[in-house]
Simulated assay, not measured.
Amino acid sequence: MEEVNNITVGEFILSGLSENPELQLPLFLIFLGVYLVTVVGNLGMIILILVSSQLHTPMYYLLSSLSLIDCCQSTVITPKMLVNFVTQKNVIQYPECIAQFYFFCAFAVAECHMLAVMAYDRHVAISNPLLYNVTMSFQVCLWMVAGVYGMGLLSATAHTVFLLRVIFCKGNIINHYFCDLFPLLELSCSSTFINEVLALSFSAFNIIVPAVTILSSYIFIIVSILHIQSAGGRSKAFSTCSSHILAVAVFFGSTAFMYLKPSSVSSLGQGKLSSVFYTIVVPMLNPMIYSLRNKDVKVSFKRLLKKMFPLNKE
């Protein structure tokens, strides 16, 4: 009897964002549009930085890495979610579900630390401009980016290894639009204590440490900005900081809401809404926040357009 009870389900059904048939088509069109904007915006930013020599600086090197993370994270989640809007049952096989969770976790953790690295880069640029090229050399940036991806892979591997030990036999309907940790643990008929402790521990580290790094960096940035004599310079710097802080607040706030409390007290319904922000909305907004308001990016984009579509003047 024990062996029969321990049979793990071979596939899951994702419940999606809404079960209302009237909302399926509008939601499909909305999120399809969001996904296309996300992919075009982030890939466009990566290509622009690669082909524009004036953007070959540490700031834009980190920005291209963030764009790659956003594009990959959105691709891991959104296409499968779109399928759910046009099918009666969105079935996902067990291996595919585990793989989706692994890559989602890796890119989500990488984004947390990449935002912290970018905040530190701005701190060095504003507070110590004379030492910027030395402090943020190509080798330093390379090691930082490697550390960012390393933290993502380490966290994802640890979570996935212990998730593979969980036995799922309480049905196969995941109350979410992708394979996330807590909705999966709801289907477990084995102990999930280690998984929850691991989730809280890693989440605390991967959210609190980058958040403290970002907060500390911006404290130094604000102090440096207050010493700028030009009112226009202060206004421009504060405007850039406020946009960055807004993006960071949305990402870390929604992530913390989902992962920094036990699943027993977490509403999965509210968790879906929270997840939409950091898996779908933030990857779309980042290119706009970090790039479209940037003068150097606008100039580089116009130069690229002139090269691609030269005007014949006779």
Rank of each mutant, 00 (worst) to 15 (best):
A247R: 02
C179G: 12
S266L: 12
Q24I: 00
C97P: 01
R122L: 09
K298G: 06
V276H: 03
E111D: 09
G269H: 09
S267G: 08
V223S: 12
N5Y: 09
V250E: 10
Y102H: 14
Y218E: 08
E11N: 11
V76P: 07
S53H: 13
V51F: 10
S127A: 13
V117K: 03
K80Y: 11
L164C: 12
S243H: 05
L142H: 10
S266I: 04
G147S: 07
A119M: 01
L285P: 06
Y120P: 04
A108H: 04
N195V: 07
E196L: 07
L304H: 05
V265A: 09
I221V: 15
S224A: 15
E186S: 14
F104P: 02
K170T: 08
S137K: 02
S155P: 04
F238Y: 15
Q54H: 11
C71G: 07
L181Y: 07
S201A: 15
T213G: 14
V109K: 00
V83L: 12
P26V: 04
V248L: 02
S274L: 02
P26D: 06
N175L: 09
V4I: 15
L23G: 05
S155E: 00
G271M: 04
S67V: 02
I208G: 10
S52K: 00
F103Q: 03
M284E: 00
Q73R: 07
V223Y: 07
V197A: 05
Q139Y: 09
M45L: 15
I219G: 11
L305N: 10
C105Q: 10
D70C: 15
E2Y: 10
I173F: 07
V223G: 03
V148P: 12
F104T: 10
I167P: 05
P79E: 02
F257N: 08
F85L: 04
T157H: 14
G171W: 02
F31S: 11
I228G: 05
C241Q: 04
L311C: 09
Y132W: 06
P210R: 01
L311I: 13
A249Y: 03
T157D: 05
R293Y: 13
A199T: 03
L32S: 15
V91D: 02
